[in-house]
Design a protein around this nucleic acid. Structure first.
Lengths: 221, 221
DNA sequence: GTCTATATCCCGATAGAC
DNA sequence: GTCTATCGGGATATAGAC
């Protein structure tokens, strides 16, 4: 019989390379793998055990790098906010009115949810206690700021109006994204296109309607 | 020694009453208990084991009445649609314009999410596969129909415009509800009031904006 | 028919050995 | 840093008491 033991091909030459994560990259490998698993099974289908299995480590290994499952998900969420902000920033064009910018951003919001479903799922479906992860709140600020800029241009600085419109636009975008992921617009790329377009148009109508209502003095509450 | 055994007060007289569900009401008791548990811990915190424990029944008992956890949740979701439709119907007033009705319904949508959080949570946070529960889709139809009525009045029957506006209003309402439950409007009754008011105003602006854009011919895609 | 008892499997989490 | 071992809890399926 050959000296090969049972199922291990060539272990002697490289004590710490293939299939093992002994030198500190297990942490980032776990984050990547988490996103993979979540993309396949959703957040609620993600488990540390599954991620450990895919990386060839024991179920206890992740606890050297993360306090618990939510702690890992919080790191994924922080990365998600980073990607989200980058995607939003990529749509800014100088020769667009603030209203057009907001409409485009609402569309991109929806597209982000569809194309980075795993990340979006973690942001809004993981049930992370934000007060427990201050870094999460900090990671969200750039995103909020990107919505604030065009709204400030539109509202001229009135703080209450700014807050009002930012929330309305966010809710419009988020609602379209949530309904899309829920299947309300159908499935496939056409559904994403449709939802993106609808979100943009709804946002445009919202902004236009605000202006009209302000002109006509139809304001209460 | 008194004849009282150890911890059982009076078992001999009533063989099949207190603490037992031998006669067919375990099914409905499970639904009620599920709503209780979900209200306390959220959908993802609900388990058949916990419901069984509260009802004094074995973990296997629920499987006599429901195929699995999702099957029970689907029944809860069907009840949720019923309550939702009833709440929406309660807000209809004849002397309101279709636009005012839609705005009010968006507000009620948000209030329903807050006041019946368990039911709302099941509807949108349980991840139920709707294609697997046809009865769920049927239960949702009355709700959709309530939004369709005022929209038809507004759009004069153009099928594309009707679909467009229903989705936009739904998304606006849903977005506000989701952000409220996520804590974006703060916590407590004031947050609910604020979110309800914002959803109503955003819907009013949306409808007004649509009309304005149609007048000005600003329509594309 | 309804529930109990039981057994298997997966997951989260911790303690201690290497 | 990772592994082994282990505990508790939940989902699920089956066999059997009443």
């Amino acid at each position: 019989m050959s000296p090969t033991p049972s199922e291990e091909p060539a272990p002697p030459a490289e004590p710490d390379r293939r299939g093992r994560y002994h030198h500190g990259d297990l942490r980032s490998a776990l984050v990547d793998t988490a996103i993979e698993v979540i993309a396949e099974r959703g957040v609620r289908g993600f488990s540390l055990a599954e991620a450990s299995r895919r990386l060839g480590v024991t179920v206890a290994a992740p606890y050297r790098h993360f306090a618990d499952r939510d702690d890992l998900l919080a790191v994924v969420a922080i990365r998600a906010f980073g990607v989200f902000a980058a995607v939003l920033a990529g749509t800014l064009s100088e020769d667009a009115t603030p209203a057009e910018q907001l409409a485009a951003m609402a569309g991109v919001y929806v597209r982000f949810a569809a194309e980075h479903r795993a990340l979006f799922d973690v942001l809004f479906g993981a049930g992370l206690d934000k007060s427990k992860y201050p870094a999460l709140g900090r990671a969200a600020e750039p995103v909020l700021e990107m919505f604030l800029a065009p709204v400030r241009s539109l509202c001229g600085g009135a703080p209450e109006a700014v807050d009002d419109l930012v929330m309305a636009v966010s809710a419009t975008a988020h609602g379209h994204a949530a309904l899309l992921l829920d299947g309300a617009f159908g499935t496939g790329p056409e559904a994403v296109d449709a939802a993106e377009s609808r979100a943009a148009r709804a946002t445009a109508a919202l902004v236009a309607g605000r202006a009209a209502m302000r002109l006509h003095g139809t304001m209460d509450g």
